[in-house]
Nucleic acid binder design. Structure first.
Lengths: 237, 237
DNA sequence: ATACTGTTGTTTGTTAACAACAATCCTTTG
DNA sequence: CAAAGGATTGTTGTTAACAAACAACAGTAT
């Protein structure tokens, strides 16, 4: 099959395996493909109208992101989540964010700080109705991505990309369970993050580290409480 | 080309892309392929007597390990190292090892502790002549791998695998420069690591964290001093 | 009924050929 | 002579067909 520009021209040289990767990631994160479900290379290839090559590559990349698991000669499955995964992911996240804010205090440029502020500004303009769980999570991930970017630490950012996908997947999972969100958390979102920008700007490294640590701990507590009331493992087999 | 069992039967189901990955990794870590050098898929494929598929897969895996860099439509190069890379790698390592020892204090089994001890015992039996820089580094990586394993934290271990490869590559690079090793470090290797096992056994988490931190800092200082006297970047283009 | 074995079907692993892209060199033109 | 442009060459991206591994099942012997 020839690459067809479906409607809009592809701006950058996006290669087929990129498209498949993004499509598949979206499908997983939007919960179109449920955790535990089997993904056959050929099936997906036919469905997307491409050959198995790019699909194979996409699956490998998503395995690295932790969104799918691959077993030799047995194929790929959408990753499923247990409480252990939450502990692992959040302990990694905590360590990574501390490192990130440390480097951000040293390396953040004015543009980096502006980028973070801009996200907060956009959030502040949302009406209460617009502040859905999903929306908040999106802003949250976006903000923290900006934080990691401001650290200017390539390897750290690559690790964050992986974590980000997994955290996203976890959040999607908690959305699907209809436990009501902790209302006390909503109004604090803006101020909490604004404080973080502030300590980075003033380069209070020590304070920054403790601040981000408790920030992440709070996130863990929230997601963890949601999770414990749901099933332990969403994969059937 | 058909898979030929070269001499001995392959114990586990090793697939062709695994073989290529390992071969290529060895070639890079043994400095057969120098940093910055170009790797063409076809060339390597012909050289190894396989098709481009497995080679492509191997390159992708090694990119994730940080041993090669891939640019779209431009192919792969063996990664080259600068002082920035050292800072990045060691700051990551520090954060990861602290997390590892924290989890090890909680999760290490008797078998885990034995495994670490066993490595130290093997090292103690080496004669002074055998304690080359290369040998010491191998033992060091092995010990720290055992430490990470004892944390029983899958994601942490996957991150360590990546770091391990990169540290290995860095060490190889410092070996190739003929700066003489810090003699004071040699006799301390055994006792230093034994202390680490001890704090894990006695679950002194707090003490363990500070201990491992200074341990890694020491490693950074050593490698860093070696590096600064050599060229900043080993890649020519 | 149960354990074993051969068979069949499905899926992944591998290959070789084709298409698209990037870099280089050479030609053409100002 | 320099710069723009176009063919050329080498490399990566993609495809489709083939080979090998696994899983499920049926049939047979005990």
């Amino acid at each position: 099959m020839v690459v067809k520009s479906n409607g809009l021209a592809l701006a950058s040289r996006r290669v087929l395996s990129d498209v498949v990767t993004d499509d598949l990631r979206d499908a997983i994160l939007s919960h179109d493909l449920e955790p535990g479900i089997r993904i056959a290379e050929d099936g997906l290839a036919i469905q997307l109208g491409v050959s198995r090559g790019p699909v194979r590559e996409a699956l490998m990349r998503l395995e690295r992101e932790g969104l799918v698991t691959i077993e030799r000669h047995k194929g790929a499955r959408v990753a499923s989540w247990t409480e252990t995964d939450i502990e692992e992911i959040y302990s990694m996240r905590s360590a990574m964010e501390i490192l990130a804010i440390e480097w951000a205090c040293k390396n953040a440029t004015a543009a980096d700080l502006d980028a973070m502020e801009e996200i907060l500004t956009r959030f502040s303009k949302l009406t209460d109705k617009q502040r859905t769980r999903k929306k908040i999570s999106q802003f949250d991930l976006e903000f923290h991505s900006a934080l990691f970017a401001s650290a200017h630490h390539d390897r750290l950012n690559r690790t964050w990309e992986v974590l980000r996908s997994q955290i996203h997947a976890l959040l999607v999972y908690t959305w699907s369970s209809d436990i009501k969100i902790n209302k006390a958390y909503l109004p604090a979102w803006g101020p909490d993050h604004r404080k973080i920008v502030e300590v980075i700007r003033t380069k209070q490294t020590k304070k920054a580290k403790t601040l981000i640590n408790s920030h992440i701990e709070g996130g863990l507590a929230r997601i963890s409480s949601h999770f414990k009331e749901g099933p332990k493992d969403i994969s059937s087999k």
